[in-house]
Amino acid sequence: MDARSEESQRGGAPPSGDQVGRAQMHVDVVRHAVIGPPHHGVTRYGRGLLVAARTVEAADAAGHRLRHVDLETASPGRADLLHVPFTDRIFGATLDAAVDSVRHLLDREAPRSWVVNLHDLPQREEGADRYSRRAAAYAWLAARADVVVANSQHEARGVHDLPGCADVNIRVIPLPLEPVAAPGTGRRAPDGEPLRGGDPPTPADIGLLGFVYPGKGYERLIDAAPVGTCVRAIGQAAEGHHDYLHDLMERARQRGVDFEVTGYVPEGMLAAELHAVNVPVCPHRHVSASGSLNTWIAHGRVPLVLESPYMIEIAHRWPGAVTVATAQDFRSRLLECLGDPRRTRALGAPPSWGWSEVAAAYSRVWAEELS
């Protein structure tokens, strides 16, 4: 029986059996604002959390009860708590529009409490002007939320560095290690159409995973790869960056490196793509949380990563899950992995940090806020 039920029974006549039943059945409603295109990483994350939270809720027969509903399908009514997975790109065409979307959402739902999970946090490496504009938008959200969730300690420090956010209530819940769907056959061309014959992927010397856009270290990897190497980008160009693919292909051609881009890979075909890569690499220096890195780890791979605060955090959290290289020794470590690809395949099972553990961590945050 929760605190509210207990409070309602103090004093007066003993409660009837019907009153006790209603008290014991009380649940707090958590609404999830899952917004954005279905294949966007933050949208997929929000949907995965909602599904996992419902599973945790069904298994929880005692303690503080929570009922999880999707904001898009929920019946009218006031939410006890609103959970918002936020990145500016999916909430609006501009930063102001993204913030306004959240403001209107809060006005409409009028929750007792709200939690914002900030993704793609502003980083100074974006440039002073862009960082300043994005930092102001994210700071507005963080300062007004009852709880801010970050997906790494590195991101938590970034939130506290936002203007006026030194004292915000912040929790760290790492991204899940999602199991990859059973291997399938067939690959996708860069335009998303299936390649003829549905052949399984051919081996690639080096592989990167995720949307292709500037700043993720593709140039560094192409320059470090030996002549004749096949580098495969598993994913598609991010919106507005298709010309960037041509720049990468030309850079690779000049270096004598074969650069391939798969385009979008459906879930059932992803495991085969991950398995076909000899050396998985995450060369992004300024990453603050990475679902693609976790996908490699969940698939039993040990990716080569470039040293950064976040990658060092991962190496400490899950020892042996990544091979960390400095900018100076990146090429030599890459050559070592190419010479012995077995070192990129984990000997044991991935760490136990799936959706059930992630949802349980969020449930503790929500329950504490509503208690």
Rank of each mutant, 00 (worst) to 15 (best):
A325T: 11
A360Y: 10
G77W: 12
L82A: 03
G158T: 08
Y138G: 06
P201M: 08
P37F: 06
L81P: 03
T202N: 05
L304T: 05
G268C: 15
E178D: 11
G268D: 15
V227F: 00
G210K: 01
V84Q: 09
V51L: 10
P163Q: 00
G215R: 03
H104V: 12
H68K: 03
R171E: 00
A367V: 11
D60T: 15
G268I: 15
Y131H: 09
C337Y: 09
A3C: 04
P280K: 03
P190N: 01
A367I: 09
N278V: 13
A276P: 04
L335A: 07
R345L: 14
Q123R: 14
L106N: 12
L208R: 01
R112L: 14
R89C: 10
L66Q: 07
V257E: 00
Y138M: 04
R124D: 04
D167K: 01
E7M: 15
G164A: 04
I173N: 02
V212W: 05
R333T: 14
W353Y: 14
P14D: 12
L177H: 02
N117G: 07
V261S: 08
H64I: 08
L245G: 03
P266D: 08
H83G: 04
A349N: 04
M1F: 08
A359L: 08
A52I: 12
V148D: 04
A62P: 03
W114L: 05
H284E: 10
A271L: 08
G11P: 03
G348R: 06
W366L: 14
G197I: 01
Q9T: 05
Q19S: 15
D329M: 15
R144C: 06
V180I: 05
G63V: 05
L195I: 03
D100N: 15
E369G: 12
S132D: 14
D70T: 13
G158I: 01
T55F: 12
A237S: 09
W355T: 13
E219S: 10
S8L: 12
E109K: 07
T295C: 05
V30T: 07
G158P: 09
I173G: 00
V51T: 13
A289R: 11
H68A: 06
Q19M: 06
G36P: 01
R187P: 02
L335P: 04
H275Y: 13
D146Y: 07
G217I: 02
D161W: 00
V277Y: 07
S308A: 12
P351N: 01
G186M: 02
S8N: 03
H246R: 14
V168N: 06
D88I: 10
H68V: 00
Q236P: 00
L105C: 04
A33F: 05
H299R: 07
D100C: 07
R285E: 12
E357T: 13
S356H: 13
R133C: 07
Y45H: 13
P176H: 02
S288C: 14
H32Q: 12
A74G: 08
S352N: 11
D340E: 07
V305M: 04
A98V: 14
K216N: 01
S356T: 14
I173T: 01
A128K: 14
R78G: 11
Q328D: 13
E250C: 09
A233R: 01
H241L: 05
P15H: 11
E273D: 10
L141I: 01
L49N: 13
L370A: 02
V148K: 04
A276R: 09
A110T: 13
A58M: 13
T344V: 13
A346C: 05
P266G: 06
L208N: 01
V69T: 10
I234D: 06
S5E: 09
